[in-house]
Amino acid sequence: MSGWSQHQGHAIALPIHNVDTDQLIPSRFMSTPRSEGYGRFLLHDLRRDADGDTHPDFPLNRHAHASVLVTGRNFGSGSSREAAVYALVDAGVRAVFAPSFGDIFAGNAINNGLLPARISEEDMSLLFQALAGAALAAEVCLENSHIQIGDLRIGFDLDPGWRTKLINGWDDIDLTLAHRADIERHKEDLIRRAPWVRPALITKSS
């Protein structure tokens, strides 16, 4: 995963609270191999009617090139499906601005280079007003934690560890393997101290 610190693109408003992961990607698409791309599944059923025709007024249908979403509270609540992040990333989305995010979703976002930027409810309203139904040029700065749309500059919150990870594009597995000796020590200590932690029956189970 490559890191990033600045992003220039277009922002749109999706003024809905509680956009859950089942909306971000309905479960029936989740057996698709990632190599086929998940972008076409993003918000699939909200963007289309029962016959599969797209709603012309839905923000993402009007502005398919948007790379920054400003949305409501509790975005990405629900399941742990990382496919919800794949759908966003594969559709070209790099940052989501919202007052709060599902905890698992936010972690998944970071692991895929997608910024979950926390903003206040007031700033959310300001951005909704500024964007209205339009897609406006926006610049996201990770170093200084702000988004700039025209004259409007709004700051956001992000865990410092997550910021570093997004900027560096760190891969956790590489990072962790550097701690191999500590992990091994913990494991050996655990086996000595609390042998019952290993599952019983383990030898019979293969």
């Binding site: 742990s80 499906r81 990382e82 496919a83 992040v85 698992i104 972690g107 998944n108 692991n111 895929n112 956790d172 597995i173 962790t176 393997l177 992990i183």
Partner: peptide, 12 residues
């Protein structure tokens, strides 16, 4: 946990 984390737990 998400898929990236599942892979991490599997590996480490």
């Amino acid at each position: 946990i998400g898929a990236t984390e599942v892979a991490h737990v599997l590996a480490t």
